[in-house]
Design a protein around this nucleic acid. Structure first.
Lengths: 104, 104
DNA sequence: ACAATAGGCAAGCAGCCACTTGCCTGTCAA
DNA sequence: TTGACAGGCAAGTGGCTGCTTGCCTATTGT
């Protein structure tokens, strides 16, 4: 049986990447880690031209956290968000070269 | 001005990758180009354990073609499908930290 | 203490998406 | 020519998903 994909993780990962707002959040966090929810909200409206409510952003961050792309750390009344690109590693390997058929 | 993303292409690309059946189709085509619709249908049921109808597969191939990941060439009564991984190139560069964090 | 700040939780709703259903077109072999 | 094969087109439907709405908890400053 060929390894199709690590279904649970991969599905959550790709679904997380399917939304433009979530990709913009990853962009914002790749520029600077440790941003709070309100910081990200402000950045979405200014730098990315998106008008998303706080709750919407929060739910998007939930999805990103489930996919393992974002980690949260609570300090006092602030929740800081950090980017974790580790889950993207297998994605870069997949479907690599069309002229390099994997012999098996 | 930072390039946020090539919205049209990127959105179609990520949405195309969001479905497990479509990812399985890319897997199947990465093993061998030039498969027909019926070949891919058979391969989905056997190798990937998916029970998708011919029309469902065809619609998935439409999405993949729109995203530029699959090209079609008609010969007689057969339509052959080829994989094109070129649209995936910018994906591999994105969210790629030069300074790598968290070896975790 | 009290108000403001930062964020969480959950229900409801509208649009989208994957899939089905039904029928049609074009190609090839006998 | 006729039937089987390979595929296309389009409308309808159920479930998922992104977003809103409303209310709640916790922390901090004065």
């Amino acid at each position: 049986m060929p390894i199709v994909e690590d279904v649970d993780d991969a599905d959550a990962l790709f679904k997380a990447l399917a939304d433009p707002t979530r990709r913009a959040l990853l962009d914002a966090l790749s520029e600077r880690d440790g941003q709070t929810l309100f910081e990200l909200c402000a950045r979405m409206t200014t730098a990315h031209g998106l008008t998303s409510s706080r709750q919407a952003i929060s739910q998007h961050l939930d999805v990103l956290e489930t996919a393992g792309l974002v980690t949260r750390r609570r300090e006092g009344r602030y929740t800081f968000h950090d980017l974790d690109t580790a889950p993207l590693a297998p994605l870069r390997e997949r479907w690599h070269h069309p002229d390099e058929r994997t012999p098996r």
